[in-house]
Write a protein that binds this DNA or RNA. Sequence first.
DNA 1: ACGGGGTACGTAAGCGCTTTCGTAAGCGCT
DNA 2: AGCGCTTACGAAAGCGCTTACGTACCCCGT
Lengths: 344, 344
Amino acid sequence: MPRAGQRPRLVEVAERAGVSLATASRALAGREGVSTEVADRVRLVARELGYVVNPYARTLAGGARSTVGLIVHQVDDPYFSEIAAGVIQLAAEQGLLVQICQSGRDPDYELQQLRHLIAQRVGIILISGSGYDDPRVEAEARAELAAFQDHGGRVAAIGRHALGVDAVLPDNEAGGHALAAHLMDLGHRRIAVAAGSAGLTTVADRLAGVTSALRQRGLRPADLTVVHGDFTRGGGRAATEQILNEHPETTAIVALNDAMAIGVLSTLRSRRVPVPARISVVGFDDVSVAADLAPSLTTIRLPMTEMGRTALTLALKPRSARPRRRATGHLLVVRDSTGPAPTT
Amino acid sequence: MPRAGQRPRLVEVAERAGVSLATASRALAGREGVSTEVADRVRLVARELGYVVNPYARTLAGGARSTVGLIVHQVDDPYFSEIAAGVIQLAAEQGLLVQICQSGRDPDYELQQLRHLIAQRVGIILISGSGYDDPRVEAEARAELAAFQDHGGRVAAIGRHALGVDAVLPDNEAGGHALAAHLMDLGHRRIAVAAGSAGLTTVADRLAGVTSALRQRGLRPADLTVVHGDFTRGGGRAATEQILNEHPETTAIVALNDAMAIGVLSTLRSRRVPVPARISVVGFDDVSVAADLAPSLTTIRLPMTEMGRTALTLALKPRSARPRRRATGHLLVVRDSTGPAPTT
DNA sequence: ACGGGGTACGTAAGCGCTTTCGTAAGCGCT
DNA sequence: AGCGCTTACGAAAGCGCTTACGTACCCCGT
């Protein structure tokens, strides 16, 4: 019988439907071995009673986990919040809840968050963001994730290879290549890169694309100015100051993500450097505000929301023998922040 | 004895420490009735074994819940992602996990999310965003939350009154007043408002502040043009088109949040309307990108991250007899998007 | 008519923890 | 010495669910 003011339990449902606990459980979990007639009756009663399974009891008893953990570098960075939006959308459709953590781009803290999530016994873990150049961190993360998967956990990564798990991967190198090629087609030869932290694989990959484009067109990598900051607007501002001071001949700045590009544009504006008349600027990611900046930003579009959904989709499928990879499309979006190199 | 490849359980800790399960549990939960000597030994063993309590078992057994649910309108809106960042920060410091949901500003869907969270037995619920004008929805939400609190749940709201729970509240009316006053001090008399959906309490409050400033200075509310859209960049763009077409005499646009203000600026730029020479623009919230826009945005600063932290702090305290309220400061930040009204 | 095999369902044993209750030991008091 | 009181700890009863196993029952072939 129902207890005053408490949520109904499975026993209540079972009694009202005139079946045993086991049958009620099977019926609601959609497991076989229950006649459709009985199953329908149980589901009906459950609906009437407003019954919702207690996830703690279910998980403890060894049933399916209902929560997915999501680790991102920074939630208030549009790149990650758009990915998170995709994950959360799909999770809601599936009746899953999303536990979100941020690592602040600190590899050790991220590892700690990961362990915490595993210790909390979430069912699925999604890791989004760059990998780290530090082989120790990557190896430890790999090991934790492998053990987690061996105990039935499911994992997928977004934008991170080398973790030994399913992953959705943008082609950072091709994107970097396309940006540099676009600038060179406009006549730019003095190009500077506002790069994120040197320890991130994303930075290395995008940078590799840029240098390959230069090499392809006969420039030497030494002709390229690379300034490392971090993947934030502030990082973009600092990088721009340095570029302006140390390499005044620069005619184009490649920011390796849009957040930095916003900082670059902001600093150029306050220094009264016309964009793109004097310096062209490109970003990477196409966060949604990129189109509304002044000037609007030429960048590489990555389908962030879809990437989040795809990652969860991968994690929802049964584990495969070898890690799956999904490449995401990317597209050069030319807007107003790039123009022909100035003819000195 | 430990089982191969499995996380250690409390029994393992208890055995190694030479105490009973009950004592081990008490020691780790910091409950009294355990000598400091024994408690230290248990904690030491737990650390050695890498023991972390199984939250499902703990919750099922009636112990403390360790997860906080956070409902926001939209995760990829900087206003909410900055609030979320604050909540997540503090939660991480407290060893709590954050379950995040988005409502898409749909009152019924939000109610559904709320029920889902309650059914999932999270311990704490934080609701962020505007309330709705619809009395039915608000009443239902109140009722759900009241029942939740009666069963030991904890709740706090951000930017929402009328829910009968602890809340942290920006003074939207004073902010709206300050914006309008600033514009009128600059000589603007033809002011238009790009407002969010008419059904949101935040919109009504900010708008009330604007009209009170006009009235205070001898203008009639009828002199004010109000266009309703939604609280997004797209909403700002649409509102601007309408204002420009139907009220070409307008010299200042008040966007009721920064997202709309970005859309307003973007449209004015593509229509080649100089800001602030021809039209001044103000926003509300001071999301972090506001300072990096071109022109940088005059707006009301709300301490979003701190608001998130404060809300969680409120929810962490024991429930008080009557709902607590924390007012948040706000500050008019004057930047480059506002200037003297053009002298026609 | 009878045994074998499959299907539908019930019984009961946990999952790993918290907490109530009970007990033994130690204390001060008369 | 005997009493009650407090303190430190252990035994065991669940929390609400899933699932291995057991038991009816029915359909089939012979």
